[in-house]
């Protein structure tokens, strides 16, 4: 699914450069549930941004579902990311002006589906995530846990094979966090490859592998 070889990310600092990621070698197979852990500044977020294809300023090799990302044009990267990856944010990042159902429809609207197909997928997701009764509510009318539930549903509604999650339970209390992690487990069992960033050892225990980062390096 994912293969990184000698991947490095640096930013300018004064006259020199600061490395955020150093010589990252990482292979993630289809069906894995990987947790990336490490202290603040370890490079977790830069790694996730690169995996999501939102950051093109790196060197090395990145292979995603057989495509060598470093050889793709910006447009082709966008298309690949759209097809392959769903993203869950710590801050939910739902669009406040849209209802729950409309928020779920947003990613589908960028995938060239007809209105009927989109409506069918939204209805499916509402049913699957038990949110039918909340479909006409706006994000501000939902609790944090419910908003994250919508965030997860939005990330997987187009059935991407890879789900990336950046501190998905960072703003939730423990019961809500457990619900989200159970949901991740179910998605993983259904075949979705998951890469999550978290500080929580408990959340990490839901996955089948932990990658620890420190100062941009993968710890052995």
């Amino acid at each position: 699914m994912i293969r990184l070889r000698n991947l490095e990310k640096a930013v300018k600092q004064g006259s020199g450069q600061l490395f955020l990621l150093r010589r990252i070698d990482l292979t993630i197979d289809r069906g894995d549930f990987v947790t990336v852990m490490g202290p603040s500044g370890a490079g977790k977020s830069p790694l996730l941004a690169i995996l999501r294809l939102l950051d093109a300023g790196w060197t090395g090799e990145y292979e995603l579902m057989g495509d060598r990302v470093e050889t793709l044009s910006a447009k082709a990267r966008g298309e690949l990311g759209k097809k392959a990856i769903g993203f869950v944010f710590q801050q939910y990042h739902l669009l406040d002006g849209l209802t729950v159902a409309e928020n779920l429809e947003v990613p589908l609207s960028y995938r060239g589906l007809s209105s009927k197909e989109r409506q069918a997928l939204v209805a499916d997701a509402l049913d699957r995530f038990r949110m039918v009764g909340k479909k006409d509510l706006y994000p501000t009318q939902l609790s944090g846990g419910q908003q994250q539930l919508v965030g997860v549903a939005r990330a997987v509604i187009a059935k991407p094979p890879l789900l990336l999650a950046d501190e998905p339970t960072g703003n939730l209390h423990s019961a809500q966090a457990e619900e989200i992690m159970q949901l991740f487990t179910e998605l993983n069992r259904a075949g979705t490859t998951i890469v999550q960033v978290t500080h929580s050892e408990k959340n990490a225990s839901y996955g089948n592998r932990i990658v620890r980062l420190r100062d941009g390096w993968i710890e052995n």
Binding site: L54, E79, G81, K82, F87, F89, H93, P107, Y110, A158
Partner: peptide, 16 residues
Amino acid sequence: TREIGVRIAIGAQRRD
């Protein structure tokens, strides 16, 4: 700006 960032992160292309 935030909304545009979210839309790009969940699949919007530049033309969208």
